[in-house]
Simulated scan of single mutants.
Amino acid sequence: MEIGNRRYQNFREGIQACVPTMLGYLGIGFAAGVVEKGVGMSLLESLLVSMLVYAGSGQFIICGLLAIGAPTSSIIFTVFLVNLRHFLMSLSVTPYFRGNSLLSNIGLGTLLTDESYGVLTTALQEGRTVTSAWTHGLNVAAYLTWIVANLLGGLLGQFIPNPERFGLDFALTAMFLGLWLFQVELPLKKRTRQSLKVLGAVIVSLLVLMRLATGELAVIGATLIGCLVGTLTAEKAVTV
């Protein structure tokens, strides 16, 4: 059987595909929990943030803004802008799940992250037939791992008074760098050409926006432009 015909079908196979992401989430989620504890969050607050926000970048931003005493409205607006890319990610995979129920699609979109999106789109670009059950397994496994890792970080954070000393505040950046390097190492076919287009769009837009806005807004704008270019240049792989 050719690899392109292999079907990613059940929930258990989704969990298996999530194992590398789960291992990464244990580290980055632990770091987030430690940083949250460092800015004065209680264990319950850390739990609620990991469950309701469920975004590494968003949670680190929340901690940074709390540390400088930023107003609540500023925190909400900043996190919203940073995570607006999830709209584009969900939009790009919508055609593969059109036959699903509304409730199922809400679940898929709600728990979709950068990492699970990477696993999902890689499977689609390889020509695999992906089902909603498999994707739910992928998403739920990552979600539960993230919550557990945050709790562990919150529990042990009291013993790490200075997270920056151990580079824990850099954990999220390191994880995204690893994901990017993984994409670069893939075979030099359509997928890599698309990655280079996205990278070029991000670099150019970042250079332009840095002259027109603040650094924070430039990064957010370049991220959204990169997601948009990725969505527009993605070629349809296989219909579910």
Rank of each mutant, 00 (worst) to 15 (best):
G69Q: 09
F77Y: 11
L43T: 07
Y8P: 00
T129S: 14
N83F: 04
I220W: 01
T192M: 15
G157V: 06
T231I: 14
Q194A: 12
D169A: 06
L177T: 06
A32W: 05
L43Y: 04
E13K: 05
F87Y: 11
N105V: 04
T214Y: 08
V35W: 03
Y25Q: 03
A218V: 04
M51P: 01
N162W: 02
V219S: 10
L84W: 11
A133Y: 05
M89G: 05
G200F: 09
I147H: 08
G29Q: 08
L224W: 14
F97Y: 12
K189Y: 08
K190T: 13
V79E: 12
A142K: 02
R6A: 10
L151E: 10
T131W: 03
L186T: 09
A149F: 01
F30M: 01
P95A: 08
L120V: 03
I28N: 02
A171W: 00
S73R: 08
P163Q: 06
S132T: 12
P71S: 12
I15K: 08
V119S: 03
L207Q: 11
C227D: 06
G38H: 11
F170C: 06
K37D: 03
M210N: 15
T233C: 14
T129M: 11
G178S: 11
G230Q: 06
S205M: 14
T145H: 08
V204I: 15
L172I: 13
S104H: 09
T145I: 04
N10A: 11
L212A: 13
R98K: 15
L44F: 14
C63S: 13
E216W: 10
M51W: 05
T113C: 11
L196C: 08
I28A: 11
W134T: 05
A142I: 10
